[in-house]
Simulated scan of single mutants.
Amino acid sequence: GWYALTHDPFLLHFLHRWWAWIAVAALVLMARKLRAPGDRRISVAIHSAFGVQILLGIATVMTGMNIILAVLHQAVGALVVASAVWGAHRLGSDKA
């Protein structure tokens, strides 16, 4: 079982896609909490980042793993993390 989780490309791809949808659901919930007028830029950044990430992921698979699209998918992944951290920071600062 552990070997399949780390070496089976079909299982890894399946898990990658399903965990991605769970991450998107969490990001949507976070972005909805940030819809207030002062936080709208953060909400737009989160939605834009994961939207582009989804499109690049689909395009990467549809093109047979085009290296340029794959690298862009990785780079936008960093933007998704950055926007999520920005949102978490803003939500955390409300509680302080």
Rank of each mutant, 00 (worst) to 15 (best):
residue 42 I to M: 06
residue 92 G to E: 02
residue 19 W to Q: 12
residue 9 P to F: 03
residue 20 A to K: 10
residue 31 A to K: 01
residue 11 L to G: 01
residue 14 F to T: 07
residue 55 L to K: 01
residue 77 G to T: 06
residue 45 A to M: 04
residue 47 H to M: 13
residue 58 I to D: 06
residue 93 S to V: 09
residue 60 T to V: 11
residue 4 A to L: 11
residue 46 I to T: 02
residue 19 W to G: 14
residue 95 K to T: 10
residue 17 R to A: 07
residue 38 G to Q: 15
residue 4 A to W: 06
residue 68 I to G: 12
residue 57 G to N: 00
residue 96 A to I: 11
residue 14 F to Q: 13
residue 52 V to P: 01
residue 90 R to Y: 06
residue 92 G to K: 10
residue 2 W to H: 15
residue 18 W to Y: 15
residue 87 G to C: 01
residue 22 I to F: 08
residue 45 A to Y: 00
residue 32 R to K: 12
residue 31 A to V: 02
residue 1 G to E: 12
residue 49 A to N: 09
residue 48 S to N: 04
residue 83 S to R: 01
residue 3 Y to C: 03
residue 39 D to P: 05
residue 59 A to R: 08
residue 1 G to W: 15
residue 96 A to H: 13
residue 91 L to C: 02
residue 54 I to L: 15
residue 81 V to E: 01
residue 18 W to C: 09
residue 53 Q to I: 05
residue 12 L to Y: 02
residue 77 G to M: 08
residue 9 P to I: 00
residue 41 R to E: 12
residue 35 R to P: 05
residue 70 A to Y: 15
residue 86 W to Q: 03
residue 52 V to K: 03
residue 11 L to C: 06
residue 52 V to Q: 06
residue 47 H to C: 06
residue 68 I to K: 11
residue 21 W to V: 07
residue 47 H to R: 13
residue 61 V to N: 09
residue 23 A to R: 10
residue 5 L to W: 08
residue 3 Y to V: 06
residue 32 R to D: 10
residue 36 A to S: 15
residue 6 T to I: 04
residue 22 I to Y: 11
residue 82 A to S: 07
residue 3 Y to L: 10
residue 93 S to A: 10
residue 65 M to S: 14
residue 80 V to F: 00
residue 78 A to Y: 08
residue 47 H to N: 12
residue 45 A to T: 00
residue 19 W to F: 13
residue 68 I to T: 14
residue 25 A to P: 04
residue 46 I to H: 01
residue 19 W to P: 02
residue 21 W to A: 09
residue 16 H to Q: 09
residue 73 H to R: 08
residue 33 K to E: 15
residue 1 G to A: 15
residue 64 G to E: 03
residue 45 A to F: 02
residue 82 A to R: 07
residue 28 V to F: 09
residue 87 G to Y: 00
